[in-house]
Computed example of a mutant assay.
Amino acid sequence: MSASEPKPGDPLTERELKVMVGIANGRTRAAIAGELGVCPDTVRSAAGRARRKLGAGTDAQAVVLLFALRQFDLHEIRFPRELLAPGEVGASVQVNGGAVAV
C-alpha cells in the first residue's frame, strides 16, 4: 500500500462523505455524479476510498459504520414513502434517545 492509499481509520474527505450520503439515500453513482458535478468514475473511486478507510467490504457496511461513528445522521437520509405503512404520513425512529421524524 503506497503512502497515498487510504488506510483504515483515515478521516473521510468531504467528497467521500457526500458520496456515502448519496449512496445511503439510494442514489445511483451516475445520479450522485450529476449532483456533485463529477464523473461516475470519481464517485466510484470516492466510495472505494471511503470503504477502505472504514474497513468496510460493501457500501451498506460503510453506511452502517458511518451511522455508528456519527459521521452523518438520519436527518441526511430520506426514507422512501413505500417503506411506511399504508396511510401513514410519517414515522419516527429512535436514535440514542432522540426521535427523528420521517
Rank of each mutant, 00 (worst) to 15 (best):
P40V: 00
E14H: 11
G55D: 10
M1D: 09
L84N: 01
E5G: 08
G57M: 07
R29H: 10
T42E: 12
I32G: 06
P80V: 03
R70S: 08
E35P: 04
R27C: 12
V100H: 12
R44T: 15
V102R: 09
V43W: 03
F67A: 05
D59L: 00
P86Q: 02
A56E: 04
R27K: 15
D73A: 07
A60W: 03
T28A: 08
T13Y: 01
E5S: 15
G37W: 00
N96F: 10
G9A: 08
I77F: 13
I77C: 10
A91T: 15
G55I: 07
P86I: 01
R51W: 01
F72D: 06
N96H: 07
P8E: 15
E76V: 07
D59F: 02
A46V: 05
V100T: 08
F79L: 14
V100C: 03
T58L: 02
G87D: 12
G9N: 09
P40H: 00
S92L: 06
P8M: 11
F67V: 00
P86W: 00
V64C: 05
R51G: 02
R44C: 10
R78L: 10
V43Q: 06
G34Q: 15
G57Q: 12
T42Q: 14
L84F: 02
A31H: 06
D59C: 01
L66F: 01
L66N: 03
M1V: 06
E5L: 12
V19C: 14
A91N: 09
P11H: 04
A30E: 13
A68T: 07
F72L: 09
G57L: 06
A3H: 13
R81H: 00
E88G: 01
P8L: 08
V38N: 07
K53S: 10
A31Y: 03
G57R: 10
T13C: 02
V63S: 03
S45C: 10
N96A: 13
E82D: 06
E76H: 13
A85V: 00
V43D: 05
A50L: 07
V102T: 09
L74I: 08
R49L: 04
R49V: 03
I23K: 08
D41H: 10
D59H: 01
A47M: 09
D73T: 06
A30D: 15
T58K: 02
G26M: 12
G48S: 12
Q61I: 05
R44Y: 11
R81T: 01
A30G: 12
I32W: 04
L12P: 06
E88T: 00
A31G: 12
A30I: 13
R15G: 06
T13E: 01
